Simulated assay, not measured.
Amino acid sequence: VGMFIVMKSVPPLVMYLFVVVISILDGFAAPVSYAIVPRYATDLGKANSALSMSGEATQLVGWGLGGLLFATIGLLSTTLIILLLYIISSFMMLFLPDAEVEVLESEANLDILVKGWKSVARDPRLRLFISANLFEIFSNTIWVSSIILVFVTELLNKTESYWGYSNTAYSIGIITSGLITFRLSEEFLAVKWKSILFPLVSIAIVTLAIILFPNAQIFLFFSALVGMLSQLKEVPESVFLQETVEENNLVNVYSVIEVISTLSFSVFVLLMSYITENFGITISFLLSAICLILEAILIYIRRDYLK
């Protein structure tokens, strides 16, 4: 903000540096956000549903409100408002009650850094979670803007703005599903593997239906349905991790998952972009559905780990 005020503009290289720093800080925040849930909540199903639902609702409102503020009051004023919101958010975090944390003074810095990786390597349940998640990450790359825009423009014959409607429908689906899982959390967590398996198979079917029935109006419905189904499986997955891993080690494991997910997503986006460019968007959607089916098969085979 200070550079905007003093310089009125920021060099592109400096802006990229800021984006990298913000991404790094966000990488710290994401694992901690889910790792602290067991320390403050007794009903993990409802807590994770509320956390995901509030985050998605904030993004849904924030994108539209942010664009409106930028168009009406300009970049500098909008950035100052964002800075103020960050300050208020950080201040509110001070009111969280203190949680008891077991401090292991015998651990060296290197041990702390590799603690999460050792846990993943030793626990077959965590290895299953990450292996299955890799299939889903590859599948989800079809929703990246550079790929889904090809579907929107080539098969639906719509402009780029229609992609925004799809994102909104997706977010509405997540919020709706969050309300359902919040209300029926006990039922969804009774048998976790079924609560993960059913949405996976359903999303695969919807993905195939999208390319079989390329209709603009139906696509919005399918987008909301995918958002809803993805949220249905996310809550039992989060609860599974929080119940499987010790509280003191949870943030380390979440950090490992975040690193693996981010790196694999970057590679898979490049791979899916290449496939889309050379073989067409239909093949990309077909591969996405196949990956979801393979993940579902893996979950079913190892369902004993998810009880």
Rank of each mutant, 00 (worst) to 15 (best):
V1S: 14
K8L: 14
V10W: 11
M15C: 11
Y16H: 11
L17V: 09
V19H: 05
V21S: 07
V21D: 04
I24G: 03
L25W: 09
L25P: 05
G27A: 11
A29K: 13
A30M: 12
A35R: 03
A35Y: 00
V37C: 03
Y40S: 06
D43E: 14
G45R: 01
S49Y: 01
A50K: 11
E56P: 05
A57L: 10
G62P: 00
G62K: 05
G67A: 02
T72G: 04
L76N: 09
T78G: 07
I81D: 08
I82F: 09
I88K: 07
S89W: 10
F91P: 01
F91L: 09
M92W: 09
M92C: 11
F95R: 09
P97D: 04
A99P: 07
V103D: 06
L104D: 15
A108C: 12
L110F: 14
I112P: 01
W117G: 08
W117N: 07
F129L: 11
F129I: 06
S131Q: 10
A132I: 11
I137F: 04
S139N: 01
N140P: 03
N140I: 07
T141Q: 08
S146D: 02
S146P: 04
L149K: 08
V150D: 02
T153V: 12
T153A: 11
T153N: 08
E154T: 13
E154W: 07
L155F: 09
N157M: 12
Y165W: 14
S166E: 09
N167R: 13
T168F: 11
T168Q: 06
Y170L: 11
I172N: 05
I172Y: 01
I174P: 01
I175Y: 11
I175P: 03
T176V: 14
I180E: 01
F182V: 12
E187R: 14
V191Q: 12
V191S: 12
V191K: 13
L197V: 13
L197Y: 13
F198A: 14
P199R: 07
V206T: 15
L208A: 11
L212P: 12
L212H: 12
F213E: 08
N215E: 14
N215V: 15
F222Y: 07
S230C: 05
S230Y: 12
S230R: 06
L232N: 02
F240W: 06
E243Q: 12
V245T: 08
V245F: 03
E246N: 08
E247T: 09
N248H: 08
N249Q: 10
N249P: 00
N249D: 06
N252W: 00
V253C: 00
Y254E: 00
V256T: 07
I257D: 02
I257N: 08
T262N: 14
L263V: 15
V267E: 07
L270I: 05
M272Q: 10
S273T: 15
N278K: 15
I283Y: 00
L287R: 01
A289R: 00
A289V: 01
I290V: 09
I293M: 05
E295D: 14
E295F: 06
I297M: 12
Y300T: 08
